[in-house]
Amino acid sequence: MKYIRRANERGVANFGWLNSKHSFSFGNYYDPKHMGISALRVINDDMVMPGQGFGTHGHRDMEIISYVIEGALKHEDSEGNAHVIPAGDVQRMSAGSGIMHSEFNASQTDPVNFFQIWIQPNRLGTQPSYAQKTLPQEDPLTPLVTPDGEGNTLSMQQNARMSRLMLSTGDVFHLASHESIGYLHLIKGELTTEDDTFGPGDAFAIDPNQVLQVKAGADVEALWFELPAAR
């Protein structure tokens, strides 16, 4: 296994209104051993309190994906987009040449838990864009974001893919990285391999052209990334 990242070793930022766990170096958290995997630069597990959020701020040249676990997230940006993202939906914002946006908890009573994911693009200075979809789980591994938006997925400006893995207790599945670096982040449940057991918040990477058998020790929800092998 190429890389293992345990949940309890992640960076933590708690500002009262926001409790965030950083898989990779971000903000005030810096660890040179955990700077990202290939083009995957950020996975922040964010819990935002009711009525709170990230005020208007800017980004450029980054593919920013939000995946809502619980609650709902309100998005507004300088391109005129204003949407609420419910649990299970996936949103992609291509910052391109520059965009201003804000993200707030859409509820005044309940927290929102979402993943903030940044992937470095393979083209710079493009026109900013926004997309959001509800993508039902059709197979154990269901693509959500792909390079060209194949099969009704969202598109991104990188030769990478993000899929959702859903398994029931006892299911066995083979993760195949093909010619990419494979990276799995476990959201819920338990996964076992021949050598390790992984719980919520744990993650691992596998080498290109590797196949790894995993078994669900409890119902699983996870994000699976296929990332460029050469950077």
Rank of each mutant, 00 (worst) to 15 (best):
I117D: 04
P32T: 08
M166V: 15
V220I: 04
V12Y: 04
G217F: 08
E79C: 10
I119H: 04
V220H: 03
A131C: 07
V48C: 02
F173T: 02
F26L: 03
F204G: 04
L124A: 11
A229K: 12
N113H: 15
F104P: 00
A87D: 02
A72W: 00
I117P: 02
M156N: 04
L73Y: 06
P143L: 02
D77P: 03
S102G: 05
G88F: 08
G96Y: 10
A216M: 05
A229V: 08
S20Q: 07
M162I: 15
V68I: 06
T134W: 10
H57P: 03
E79S: 14
Q116N: 02
V172H: 15
R5I: 09
A95G: 11
Q116E: 00
G27P: 08
T192N: 14
V112A: 03
D202A: 08
R41I: 05
A95I: 03
G55K: 12
F15G: 12
N152E: 11
R123M: 13
E63K: 09
F225K: 13
A82V: 14
G36N: 04
L141Y: 11
I181M: 12
N105D: 06
A13W: 07
A39N: 15
I43M: 11
Q116M: 00
A7W: 05
F114R: 00
L135Y: 02
S155Q: 10
M1E: 12
A203N: 08
G53K: 00
G149C: 07
V220N: 01
V211T: 15
H75G: 03
P136D: 02
E194T: 15
V145E: 00
N28E: 14
H101L: 10
Y3A: 09
N8G: 12
K188P: 01
S163L: 09
G80H: 05
A205F: 09
V112T: 11
G11Q: 01
F173Y: 14
R41D: 08
D89F: 10
Q120N: 14
A72D: 06
P143C: 02
K33H: 12
R10V: 06
A205I: 08
E194Q: 14
R123K: 15
F26K: 03
S177E: 02
G149E: 03
H83V: 15
G201H: 06
G80F: 03
